[in-house]
Amino acid sequence: MLSFTEEQIIRYSRHIILPEVGGEGQKKINEGKVLVIGTGGLGSPVAFYLAAAGVGTLGIIDDDVVDLSNLQRQILHSTKDIGRPKVESAEEKLKALNPDIDVVVYRERLTSRNMMEIISGYDVIVDGTDNFSTRFVTNDACVMAGKPFVHGGILKFSGQAMTIVPGEGPCFRCIFKEPPQQGSVPSCSQAGVLGVLAGTIGVIQATEVLKYLLGKGELLVGRLLTYDALAMKFREVQVKKNPSCPICGENPTITELVDYELPACSIQDNKPFK
């Protein structure tokens, strides 16, 4: 039976009005459990909007502290938070926005060792990492556990997003077989990023999460959405499942999770999440 408090009816009224959502859909959102990896550029808007939407359990994982150089794009954190653990700063903002939700905090780095245990409690996993090792290990873990994984990435003036639903479409490794060679792809701290890109791509990821929880619309499954902010153009690249994919192919060669030895964000600035 649908039971909302008077406050919830008002808070979520603009959702409930939507024919595709209604009280039933809002309940699905309220019962949703979403893990956001990283509370940096992408993680900030993702977690912020999902908290606003009323996602009942929001897991956030990050072992970093807030740095002045983060504030150009990581909107969950403020100037007064410099030096604080990002998860602590994030939790405070998310709970202030919506006291209705549970925020589960992991002040640690997501690796092959803790990955399976942490993701097991969630319905959807969101990529807000800036490093390829975590991204590939998360992809592999989500394929193994059969969990949807909403990928997003930004650099300079470009961004991309794709949703991986194991068994229904390609995984990240079907497209990008393995992490790039060290130094071949510059990081945000080396190459720069227009801060607002985090919002554009992060909000697309949050949209995918809500659609998944609602069971409505067309997910970015098998469709890599790319965004060029300078040209102000979106492109959709159709991508197929690779039958010889090492993780989701017919004969997987990856049978256990392995971390990659890659510096997270350049040599001087070795941080796991942005």
Partner: peptide, 14 residues
């Protein structure tokens, strides 16, 4: 409005 409709809609769903 729009809480009038929101409450009506929620009740109808039941």
């Amino acid at each position: 409005c729009p809480i009038t409709f929101v409450k009506t809609k929620l009740k109808l769903e039941q």
